[in-house]
Simulated scan of single mutants.
Amino acid sequence: MLVLSRKTNESIMIGANVEIIVLGVEGDNVKLGIRAPKEVDIHRKEIYMAIQAENRAAATNALSIEDVSKLFKK
């Protein structure tokens, strides 16, 4: 893990097109701004983990041919 110290209004770059800016620090909270292309997905980690869990669950729930057929008939 890379650990960096930054002050308010300072930033770090990830690659050539993702910039993370420290907008403010209030107690234990750090407010960050992220500049990235629209095609880059940005999620809080807990949301990202939930998405991954849902994707795994969907991939393991196999539908029968009858179930798929019913979906097309709707």
Rank of each mutant, 00 (worst) to 15 (best):
4 L>V: 11
4 L>E: 06
4 L>Y: 02
4 L>A: 03
4 L>T: 04
4 L>S: 01
4 L>M: 05
5 S>Q: 09
5 S>K: 13
5 S>A: 03
5 S>N: 10
5 S>G: 05
5 S>R: 12
5 S>I: 05
6 R>Y: 02
6 R>D: 04
6 R>M: 00
6 R>F: 01
6 R>P: 02
6 R>A: 00
6 R>S: 00
7 K>L: 06
7 K>E: 09
7 K>A: 06
7 K>D: 06
8 T>H: 04
8 T>M: 06
8 T>E: 07
8 T>A: 09
9 N>M: 08
9 N>Q: 13
9 N>W: 06
10 E>P: 03
10 E>Y: 00
10 E>G: 00
10 E>R: 04
10 E>T: 00
10 E>S: 01
10 E>N: 01
10 E>D: 09
10 E>K: 00
11 S>A: 15
11 S>F: 14
11 S>H: 15
11 S>T: 12
12 I>M: 12
12 I>F: 08
12 I>K: 07
13 M>E: 15
13 M>S: 15
13 M>C: 06
14 I>S: 01
14 I>F: 09
14 I>N: 05
14 I>V: 13
15 G>D: 09
16 A>F: 09
16 A>P: 07
17 N>V: 09
17 N>F: 06
17 N>W: 10
17 N>E: 15
17 N>P: 01
18 V>R: 05
18 V>W: 03
19 E>N: 14
19 E>Y: 00
19 E>Q: 15
19 E>M: 14
20 I>N: 05
20 I>W: 04
20 I>L: 14
21 I>Q: 01
21 I>A: 00
21 I>R: 08
21 I>H: 01
22 V>G: 02
22 V>A: 04
22 V>F: 01
22 V>P: 00
23 L>G: 08
23 L>I: 03
23 L>N: 10
23 L>M: 13
24 G>K: 08
24 G>H: 07
24 G>F: 04
24 G>S: 07
25 V>T: 06
25 V>H: 03
25 V>F: 01
26 E>V: 05
26 E>F: 02
26 E>N: 09
26 E>K: 11
27 G>Q: 09
27 G>I: 05
27 G>H: 07
28 D>R: 11
28 D>F: 05
28 D>M: 08
28 D>T: 09
29 N>V: 03
29 N>M: 07
29 N>C: 03
30 V>I: 13
31 K>S: 11
31 K>V: 09
31 K>F: 06
31 K>Q: 10
32 L>R: 05
32 L>Y: 02
33 G>L: 09
33 G>W: 10
33 G>F: 09
33 G>Q: 10
34 I>C: 07
34 I>E: 03
35 R>T: 06
35 R>P: 00
35 R>Y: 07
35 R>D: 07
35 R>S: 04
36 A>G: 04
37 P>C: 11
37 P>G: 09
37 P>L: 12
37 P>A: 14
38 K>G: 10
38 K>R: 15
39 E>L: 12
39 E>W: 15
39 E>T: 13
40 V>M: 12
40 V>K: 14
40 V>L: 10
40 V>P: 00
41 D>G: 11
41 D>C: 08
41 D>V: 12
41 D>R: 15
41 D>H: 13
42 I>K: 14
42 I>M: 15
43 H>E: 13
43 H>A: 13
44 R>H: 11
44 R>V: 11
45 K>E: 10
46 E>W: 04
46 E>L: 08
46 E>A: 13
47 I>C: 04
47 I>D: 12
47 I>R: 15
47 I>Y: 10
47 I>V: 14
